[in-house]
């Protein structure tokens, strides 16, 4: 049980690097192409969940439209590399276009974040939901550049092994980066903003600036993932890129593992992926229903996720916040606390 507590020190990073190294050697045991593909999808989910956690879990600004950065990354990639002649198509290669996928998403986050992150949480949440829905329509309308509803084709690639290493490297870097942020003063400030924003401001912290840095960073990496995804998928249109379930899954994975923790979102992503794969593979229509119900159940009975319920109850968890503000008659909640 205390293993989670000890992970809070350097061992966490060392363990992570060992895991990543092992995963890097794993293909030499002779994995099939589809196994590589499955694993790289898990890596993508871990990266997305960790990024969402940076703004949603650590800072406490629930982002209900984070997939918009994924979409912007994907479309930047699509527009830059598509072999089809559109109004603007420079025909770059994957590696030339990739940085732009991240940078465009980060710039967009800056533009959106400047007005919305000055405000309290709920405004930000709804503004992001609105950004997400509006962006899908804007992409559809801007057909001369984006191909509109017909979408864009990208040059086909069938190299599973480089997909695997790219996603592994990105995941390894992002999670290590989040680990580092969580230990740094910057990370502590983010947690302080979540716990007591007014208090943090009174101590002279420029909260808006910190929130925007966290938001833009998360958007940058999400944009990179989006760019990669567009390349891997070889086809994008507004409906496959801006799909609601992608945001829902980011929220769910962080929530399932433990909001605001370093290792919660990766754990949540792995659990959710295999749960989806095993339990819901044949019940496609019920997939989102079960996600929604699971989210309700998690909030009501397990608000700290797997990690918070298992171990570390002190530093990063939401539990004491909950305790502090909880209803004076908690009997009905305690009964469900361990289910």
């Amino acid at each position: 049980m205390n293993i989670w507590q000890r992970m809070a020190s350097w061992r966490g990073l060392i363990g992570w690097l060992i895991l990543v190294t092992l995963l890097a050697l794993y293909p030499y045991t002779g994995l099939s192409g589809s196994q590589l593909f499955t694993l790289s999808q898990v890596f993508v989910l871990v990266t997305l969940a960790s990024n969402w956690n940076l703004i949603g879990g650590m800072t406490g600004y629930v982002d209900f439209g984070h997939a918009v950065f994924f979409g912007i990354g994907a479309y930047t990639m699509g527009i830059l590399v598509t072999p089809v002649e559109m109004a603007f198509s420079p025909h770059l290669t994957f590696w030339q276009a990739l940085p732009f996928a991240g940078i465009t998403a980060a710039l967009f986050a800056l533009v959106i974040g400047l007005p919305t992150l000055r405000l309290k949480g709920p405004y930000f949440s709804i503004a992001m939901l609105g950004t997400f829905v509006a962006m899908r329509e804007i992409i559809r309308i801007a057909a001369p550049i984006t191909g509109g509803g017909k979408g864009l084709d990208l040059p086909p690639v069938l190299d599973r092994i480089s997909d695997y290493y790219f996603t592994l490297a990105l995941m390894g870097f992002v999670v290590a980066f989040i680990w580092w942020i969580r230990r740094s003063e910057f990370g502590a400030t983010l947690i302080a903003i979540r716990e007591d924003e007014v208090g943090a401001e009174m101590r002279g912290i420029n909260t808006t600036q910190h929130k925007i840095i966290a938001f833009v960073t998360a958007a940058f990496f999400t944009g990179l993932v989006g760019g990669f995804w567009a390349w891997q998928n070889t086809y994008i249109d507004p409906d496959v890129v801006f799909i609601e379930s992608r945001t829902v899954e980011m929220v769910m994975m962080s929530m399932l593992g433990g909001l605001g923790t370093v290792w919660g979102p990766p754990l949540g992503a792995v659990v959710l992926y295999f749960m989806r794969d095993i339990l819901w593979a044949n019940l496609l229509d019920y997939h989102l229903i079960s996600l929604g119900v699971l989210l309700i159940v998690l909030v009501l009975f397990m608000p700290e996720g797997i990690l918070g319920t298992l171990g570390d109850r002190s530093s990063t968890s939401l539990l004491h916040l909950w305790r502090r503000e909880r209803h004076p008659s908690p009997s009905n909640q305690d009964s469900g606390g361990n289910t």
């Binding site: 406490g60 629930v62 209900f64 949480g121 709920p122 949440s125 609601e244 829902v248 929220v251 929530m255 229509d285 019920y286 989102l288 229903i289 996600l291 929604g292 119900v293 699971l294 989210l295 309700i296 998690l298 909030v299 009501l300 608000p303 939401l318 916040l321 909950w322 503000e325 909880r326 209803h327 009905n332 909640q333």
Partner: peptide, 28 residues
Amino acid sequence: NRVIERPHLMALLVTFGISISIANIYKV
């Protein structure tokens, strides 16, 4: 009633879950 006293984030998450569930139940 169970989330009112908790941080607003929890109420947002739970109503988000309700929204997804209802929409997809109707879809089915």
